[in-house]
Simulated assay, not measured.
Amino acid sequence: MINPLSSAPPPPPQGQRTSPALSDEQKTLISDTLENVDADNLSQAQALEIVETFAAAGINPSKELASTLADAGFDARTIGDLANSAPPVPQATSEQVDLSDLVDYLDTLLEKVSGTALSETDKTSVYDGLRERFGLNDGESILNVTA
């Protein structure tokens, strides 16, 4: 009697993982991501964005990814090296940001740029607009800052 498992390929050796084939959606994402990037003038920020985009889509480094990148004129190792040379992200700590603090900060930025500060009426209007736009009640924060 023939064992039905005898025709299956052997499992990968210990420590090695096989990457699933890229889906059509992932291939489209790769193409769309690289569409407006110049492979010859790739910046560290662009490489980091590419790596983050691929990771968010579940695209892991693989021979197929390297081949797909090469077909588009990119070198996978160059992208990885550039992205990995980015400064490390600081450990995240959580801090709530009050909307009024946000409005005051925006006011400071606006004053630096235009030389004109917001009036108290303008600040209140911005504050109320932010609360309404994001469905926040008094005392709720629009942002959760990590630093």
Rank of each mutant, 00 (worst) to 15 (best):
P88S: 10
Q91L: 14
L136Q: 05
S125P: 00
G58S: 09
L136P: 02
E25A: 15
V126F: 06
K27I: 07
P11N: 13
P87F: 06
T53E: 08
T78L: 04
S62A: 08
S114F: 08
V113K: 11
I30N: 03
F54D: 03
A117N: 13
L136W: 02
D107H: 09
V97D: 06
A39R: 07
S100W: 14
P12H: 10
Q44V: 06
K123C: 07
I50S: 04
L136C: 08
Q16K: 12
V145R: 15
L110W: 10
D128P: 00
L22F: 05
P11F: 09
S125Q: 02
P12M: 13
S100C: 00
L82C: 02
V145Q: 14
S94H: 13
V145H: 12
S114P: 03
P61V: 04
E111I: 07
L82Q: 01
D98G: 00
I50W: 03
P9L: 11
S62K: 07
S6T: 08
K63V: 09
Q96E: 14
A56F: 08
R77F: 00
A83Q: 05
I79F: 01
I30V: 11
G129H: 04
L110Y: 11
R131M: 07
G58P: 03
S100T: 10
Q16S: 07
I50K: 03
R133A: 10
G115E: 11
N3D: 14
D138P: 15
A92C: 09
E120S: 12
T33Y: 04
T18Q: 15
N36W: 04
K63T: 09
P87N: 09
I50A: 06
A47T: 02
A56C: 05
G135M: 05
T116N: 13
L99D: 09
G115A: 12
T28K: 15
Q46C: 00
L106Y: 05
G139P: 05
T93Q: 15
N41M: 02
F74D: 01
R77Y: 00
P10H: 12
D138M: 00
L34H: 02
T108F: 11
D71M: 06
T124H: 07
T53F: 02
L110F: 10
S19M: 14
G135D: 11
E95V: 14
E120L: 10
A92K: 14
Q96L: 15
I30E: 03
N60W: 01
D71Y: 06
Y127T: 01
L69D: 03
Q26Y: 01
I142G: 12
A57M: 02
S19G: 07
S23A: 09
P9K: 10
F54E: 02
P9E: 13
L143V: 11
E132M: 06
G129Q: 05
L136G: 04
E64A: 13
L34Y: 01
Y127S: 06
V126M: 06
E140V: 02
Q91S: 15
L143I: 12
L109D: 09
N36R: 09
A86E: 05
A117K: 15
I59T: 02
L34A: 08
T28L: 13
K112Y: 08
L48S: 12
T108L: 11
V97T: 12
G135Q: 10
V89F: 10
N137H: 08
